[in-house]
Amino acid sequence: MGLFANKRQDGNYSMSQLFFLVVLRVFIGWHFLYEGITKLVNPDWTAYGFLNDSGWVFSGIFQNMANNPGTLKVVDFLNIWGLILIGFSLILGFLSRPAILGGILLLAMYYLSQPPFVGIEYAIPSEGKYLWVNKNLIELAALAVLFVFPTSRKIGLDRFIFRAGIEENL
């Protein structure tokens, strides 16, 4: 079963460990889902401004994405639906492992587009003060935690989907 299988899947957590891991998963899912849906319902939303505001070594790549109308359309589409699907997936615990990897990829792109490095200034103001570590990076690390401490087969639709595997484990 490749990606979906994990020897350490559903290790034994205490009740409180499981509870807070699920809370973390649901909260991040909520955040992704809302980010995605607000973009979906705003006809004027585009990643253009964000991409064009890119700094550091990858700025050329991100700005190229922004300035090619065809690419921009694809980027906008993937971003919106990526956020929404990952959001649903984390909340419901449905195919959580690929969703977590997708989320990490998205967050890595956001981070690399506008890393809070010394000497790089951005036109779009950030809502807090950051040096090297920003909320994108923290959310990315939290997703990595969820990846190594999976919960969707305990609490989530994956429990139903992969129940055969669970039964074997039981």
Binding site: V22, V26, G29, W30, L33, Y34, F88, I91, L92, G93, K154, I155, G156, L157, D158, R159, F160, R163
Partner: peptide
Amino acid sequence: RELLKSLATIPVIGAF
């Protein structure tokens, strides 16, 4: 009990 565990987070979607 199994079913409840697999559907436990669905109400979150409702809240959302």
